[in-house]
Design a protein around this nucleic acid. Structure first.
Length: 838
RNA sequence: GCCGGAGUGGCGGAAUGGCAGACGCAGGGGACUUAAAAUCCUUUGCUCGAUGAGGGCGUGCGGGUUCGAAUCCCGCCUCCGGCACCA
């Protein structure tokens, strides 16, 4: 055995051996419970970063731990390979997106393999592979056939100079990041998925998802934003057109003094056409439309509005109220129109005061009277209806159902539920994505591409210009086609799909990546699904996870899978920071995993990212911390080395060179201590990894264990019982550390004389008897302040503990002549004596 | 702005109603060495006290509940993530 851990030799050696032995290949085996462990697959940006290392190291510990505990573990890896950066590289450096992506994947695969993760690489997928996106397109068509994919007009960020749509990220201070031209908001026909049809199910299922963090479920609930209320039909005076508003407070309908509609509302045009101030109104409308939605709805943004000149009739009171256009009303939510009830809504009150609109109180607080002219605060609570026609005098709690019945029976309103969740816009006016498999025919309309013609391949040899439209548009051999129905000339859709579509089903593809005639093999998907543990950044808590859930539900409704929810347990890991900021190339605060692995090896890099912080929290990078992990692994190596060399482990015993003179006498107790340390560490690590996802404390426990073995080894090694205990202790140590540091442990496992891979070993069970102790130290508090610590039997009674405590001079000195009112004993921890000073 | 999260020694963190600071880093002292590195041992929250014995304070800030609060409740502050075309 060598005296040090030479990772440069050991790590590649075992990586090759594991691959040769196909150690991490899996199949569907019915005799063992299955465990599907998945980390969010990476975008192939070119190099892995520490965030990846952290994500995959967490996943690998959990995968290896499960495997050792008898589970059949599926642990795959792949590439979320479509997206904007490849296209930017093409535009800026003339790169070919496919080639650029291929090279990035090749490099990153090499980097990931160097980390020694236990992936089944035979299942690797890449979303830009035609064999993959064929099925992305096929799934699109299934949604289209179900009526879940449709086209409608939507506002986009448009750069007039580049003549292209910009991602929000490409808009910097309202201007195009490339050419600095001010960005305008423009309507464009786009494809959508009807995720709102699934809003109720997406919301409802969350209640049963015990394996998800509560804060993620809360974010998803808020994002879905279910709101119960009523749609109320106002009628535009003069034209008689219906103007429907959504309200959660229909009990205040008699208090409406104005309506506000969104600048995008379809009635805007007819309302403002021909008004004397039409130009001014149009300027206002386009100015509001150009504001982004966050700014429009922000509470500290000034609410601005303009009177259209039109009026509407209140369905309850018959009163005529002015119709305004306001920046704070969004077309995307509710009906795009709201009723203004300034007496009972603070935002409405501020708007009314600003523009001199009347304030009419219709709910009276108990024992008080509201004055519409002077009130400064809207009254939003329940009360008694006033100025509300036939409902006057009713408590508002009773008035609500009565008014709902009245409005509904007279056909002027109906109860409805609205959601903040909007349909999913999947169109991208870009090249590097899965083409939307639709053909436009003059006669037949929107025609899905037949299955036999899939995939609709991305063309090759496309020119990317620094300006101009989607490259697919300028590609006649792609655009021009024939209609699959009538055979006439037709045009292909040139939009590609949002990459979130590709990543909404990759976990299904992993279950049978070789499947040629189906997106996945249903029997295999049924065996593996759901994903038992999903791990990724919390930044994906809403969008990716919501889309993947939606997709899984649709697939289930199509009979393609049997689960409704794809991810049983979710772990959201924190970011890797340097100097308090997220590592990023643009900030120049990155640490390259290659540098760390080159200097210390993969095991050290893995160990540090797991040890430095709890998995769910952010991790502050520290070169010194890495150094510490490196030292720890060397310390483990030396411990095993010394035991092996001094014949304390499994090798045949020889006479110890210099046995400690007094070792024999103490060795009995120390043997027990070794066993206790081994089993205590095993218990802690088993619970921390298996039940708490607390990897940092598991590693700390192993470190403590190593410290304990160092202080005990000289006393026990060289004695028959001691050597046996030490051999067991060393085996435990290697096995416990194996999921965290797979290379060094594999080498040590063989060095102490074992044959098979340590990663195929069963996880040992701890022996509760080895942990048993007779007495324990407890803290003695007087009125909650610790005054002393005493040894008591583990099963001490409260009276006996009190007596023992009173025998302590420190305790009795503090108590003095005060009388003991009561005592609280927390077994094994403390005794609190509550005293009353005379 | 809205939604979610976090705040504990010089630093990363531990303790989820019961001894605050496990474990690691950094620092101090020592051993080994011609020397250094490596390693091993030891010490280390702040403060008063004499460097002792002993005491006080201490988990972002202000209140509260409790025998007992880093942990639970109310109100703030600061930082981080998401906000629908980055992935």
């Amino acid at each position: 055995m060598r005296d040090k851990y030479y990772f440069e030799e050991v790590e590649p050696k075992w990586q090759e051996q594991w691959e040769k032995d196909r150690l991490y290949r899996v199949d569907e085996t019915p005799d063992r419970p299955k465990f599907y462990l998945l980390e969010m697959f990476p975008y192939p940006s070119g190099r892995i970063h520490m965030g990846h290392v952290r994500n995959y190291s967490i996943g690998d510990v959990m995968a290896r731990f499960r495997r050792m505990n008898g589970w059949n573990v599926l642990h795959p890896m792949g590439w979320d390979a479509f997206g904007l950066p490849a296209e930017n590289a093409a535009i800026q450096h003339g790169a070919n997106p496919a080639g650029w992506t291929r090279e990035n994947i090749a490099h990153m695969r090499k980097q990931i393999k160097r980390m020694g993760y236990s992936y089944d690489w035979a299942r690797e997928v890449a979303t830009n592979d035609p064999a993959y996106y064929k099925w992305t397109q096929w799934l699109f068509i299934q949604l289209f056939k179900k009526g879940l994919a449709y086209r409608k007009s939507q506002k986009v960020n448009w750069c007039p100079s580049c003549a292209t749509v910009l991602a929000n990220e490409q808009v910097v201070n309202g201007a195009c990041e490339r050419c600095d031209t001010p960005v305008i908001r423009r309507q464009l026909e786009q494809w959508f998925f009807r995720i709102t049809d699934y809003a109720e199910r997406l919301l409802h299922n969350l209640d049963a998802m015990q394996g998800w963090p509560e804060h993620v479920k809360t974010m998803q609930r808020n994002w879905i934003g279910r709101s119960e209320g009523m749609d109320l039909d106002f009628v535009v005076a003069d034209t008689g057109e219906k103007l429907t508003v959504f309200t959660t407070r229909h009990d205040t309908v008699y208090g409406v003094t104005y309506l506000v509609i969104a600048a995008e509302h379809p009635l805007v045009e007819r309302l403002i056409a021909g008004r004397p101030n039409e130009d001014e109104l149009r300027r206002f409308v386009s100015q509001v439309i150009s504001q982004d939605d966050i700014a429009r709805t922000a509470e500290d943004t000034e609410k601005v509005g303009m009177f259209t000149g039109g009026y509407a009739i209140n369905p309850a009171s018959g009163e005529k109220v002015p119709i305004w256009i306001g920046n704070y009303v969004l077309m995307d939510y509710g009906t795009g129109a709201v009723m203004g009830v300034p007496a009972h809504d603070q935002r409405d009150l501020e708007f009314a005061r600003k523009y001199g609109l009347p304030v009419k109180a219709v709910i009276s607080p108990p024992g008080a009277e509201l004055n519409g002219h002077t009130m400064e605060c809207a009254y939003v609570d329940d009360g008694v209806q006033i100025n509300s026609g036939q409902f006057d005098g009713m408590p508002s709690g009773e008035a609500r159902p009565a008014m709902a019945r009245y409005l509904e029976s007279s056909g002027k309103g109906r109860p409805t539920v609205h959601y903040k969740l909007r349909d999913w816009l999947i169109s991208r006016q870009r090249f590097w994505g899965a083409p939307i498999p639709i053909v436009y025919c003059k006669h037949c309309g929107q025609v899905p591409v037949p299955d036999a013609d899939l995939p609709v391949m991305l063309p090759t040899g496309v020119k990317f210009m620094p300006t101009g439209q989607s490259p697919l548009l300028g590609c006649p051999e792609f655009v021009n086609t024939t209609c699959p129905v009538c055979g006439g000339p037709a045009r292909r859709e040139t939009d590609t799909m949002d990459t979130f579509v590709c990543s909404s089903w990759y976990f299904l593809r992993y279950t049978s990546p070789e499947s040629h005639d189906h997106a996945w093999d249903k029997a295999k998907a049924d065996y593996w699904m759901p994903v038992d543990q999903y791990i990724g950044g919390v930044e994906h808590a809403i969008m990716h996870l919501m889309y993947a859930r939606f997709f899984t539900m649709v697939m289930r409704d199509l009979g393609l899978v049997s689960v409704d929810e794809p991810f049983k347990n979710l772990l959201t890991q924190g970011m890797v920071l340097l100097g308090g900021h997220k590592m990023s190339k643009s900030k120049g605060n990155t640490v390259d995993p290659d540098d760390i692995v080159g200097k210390y090896g993969a095991d050290t890099a893995r160990l540090f990212t797991l040890f430095a912080s709890p998995v769910e929290r952010d991790l502050e990078w520290s070169d010194e911390g890495v150094e510490g992990c490196w030292r720890f692994l060397q310390r483990v190596w030396r411990l095993v080395y010394q035991c092996v060399e001094s014949s304390g482990c499994s090798q045949p015993a020889e006479a110890p060179a210099a046995p400690a003179a007094n070792a024999t006498a103490a060795s009995g107790d120390d043997v027990l201590r070794v066993r206790r340390a081994a089993h205590a560490a095993l218990k802690k690590v088993t619970e921390d990894v298996g039940a708490r996802n607390s990897l940092n404390t598991a590693i700390a426990a192993i470190m403590e264990y190593v410290n304990a073995l160092y202080s005990l080894k000289d006393a026990v090694v060289g004695h028959e019982r001691g050597d046996a205990a030490m051999a067991e202790a060393i085996d435990f140590l290697i096995v416990m550390l194996a999921p965290f540091a797979p290379h060094i442990t594999e080498e040590l496992w063989h060095a102490v004389g074992h044959g098979e891979s340590v990663h195929s070993q069963p996880w040992p069970k701890y022996d509760p008897e080895a942990l048993a102790v007779e007495s324990v130290e407890i803290a003695v508090q007087v009125n909650g302040k610790v005054r002393d610590r005493i040894m008591v039997p583990v099963d001490v009674t409260e009276d006996a503990a009190l007596a023992a405590a009173m025998a302590s001079p420190r305790v009795s000195a503090v108590i003095g002549s005060a009388s003991v009112k009561k005592t609280i004993l927390v077994p094994g921890k403390l005794l609190n004596i509550v005293v009353q000073t005379a």
